[in-house]
């Protein structure tokens, strides 16, 4: 069942303010499980720690970010369990990244080497795992993959800047999953694109999963309407914590956590329900992550807050086999 387990993980950014060292607690005690064969949407507003959590899931951690505690365990297709948080950078680079976990970071589109043709970029990627591969072999592997994903094969001979934004993004997706990793982490793959290209990129990701090229996927975005199109489950993050995890339909039609409710209510889309509902918003601002409040982090904005909320932190608790919620309204104190 389990593919990747994130257990009680903390990852902080160490900052120097004046001459005092402070921690930005971007991921602060996160428990999350990615199941085999699922697309998990990770949603939350700007700055809540989504990208940091993605870095943690792949253990791609560089200063000022540091791993404060917890564990990340990967269960591979051939039945092995690897504790990624115990591995060294070199081992991760050699045995994990690309092979078992592919990461497409938020700035991926602009990260394609502008001076290399697409086939050369793919060649470099494959060669780092298999030194014997030739350029011809790379091209044939890449062409096959492009076809599977519905991309034209002429892109192999192009430079990145010769491709449109959507095409670049899809090419990045194709290249980073050439080795059929078990897990793909994509961070905001559609936010820089306009709607019609957005749809094509979403479809490409869906195909990647439907064809089993990647087994599990974590799709990070601030836009629930985008990820809801393909996600099986959605995890909602707020101020460094996961506050609710449930099936996509449950999150959208029966949100339980007050923040999820507020968020779904504030979404504006091109649907009659939304115009009828009118404009909604959650008053207030998220807390800062240097000194987060002691109890529930949503307490200053929550319309249902009770006494216990500001003193004790609600743990992420199983409500039924398909839903976890961290809120005192739904769990016993």
């Amino acid at each position: 069942m389990k593919r990747l387990e994130v257990k009680n993980v903390k990852a902080y950014y160490r900052l120097l303010i004046g001459n005092k060292e402070v921690d930005v607690k971007a991921v602060d005690g996160v428990n999350l499980e990615i199941r085999k064969g699922e697309i998990l949407g990770l949603v939350g507003e700007s700055g809540c720690g989504k990208s940091t959590l993605a870095k943690v899931m792949s253990m791609n951690i560089k200063p000022p970010l540091y791993f404060k505690g917890g564990s990340v365990v990967l269960h591979t297709r051939d039945g092995k369990s690897i504790e990624l948080s115990k591995l060294h950078k070199e081992e991760l680079k050699k045995n994990i990244w690309g092979k078992h976990i592919a990461i497409i970071p938020q700035e991926a589109m602009s990260a394609l080497m502008p001076t290399l043709k697409i086939k050369r970029i793919a060649y470099d990627v494959l060669r780092s795992h298999n030194p014997n591969i030739t350029l011809e072999e790379t091209v044939s592997v890449l062409k096959k993959r492009l076809e599977e994903l519905g991309l034209p094969d002429w892109v192999v001979d192009r430079y990145p800047f010769e491709l449109s934004g959507g095409m670049q993004q899809r090419t990045v997706i194709a290249i980073s999953t050439l080795l059929n990793p078990e897990v793909l982490l994509v961070d905001e793959p559609t936010s820089a694109l306009d709607v019609s290209t957005q749809k094509i990129v979403i479809k490409t990701l869906w195909r990647l999963a439907a064809k089993g090229i990647v087994d599990s996927m974590v799709f990070i975005t601030h836009d629930i309407s985008v990820v809801r199109q393909i996600a099986d489950r959605i995890a909602v993050m707020y101020a460094g914590k996961i506050v609710e995890v449930a099936s996509t339909e449950d999150i959208i039609f029966e949100p339980m956590h007050p923040y999820t409710k507020g968020l779904i209510d504030s979404i504006i889309s091109l649907e009659p329900e939304v115009r009828k509902r009118g404009l909604r918003y959650i008053p207030g601002q998220p807390p800062n992550l240097i000194n987060p409040p002691k109890g529930c982090r949503f307490v200053n904005r929550c319309p249902f807050a009770k006494d216990i909320c500001s003193t004790k932190e609600p743990p992420l608790t199983k409500i039924n086999h398909n839903r976890l919620v961290a809120c005192w309204l739904h769990i016993q104190g």
Partner: peptide, 26 residues
């Protein structure tokens, strides 16, 4: 909901919806 122009129709179909899920096929 009753666009005249082809372009508008096409764009509207690409706007992600919250309460409805798109269908894709392979």
């Amino acid at each position: 909901f009753n666009p005249k122009h082809e372009y508008t129709k096409e764009l509207i179909e690409s706007v992600p919806t919250l309460y409805r899920r798109w269908k894709f096929d392979l």
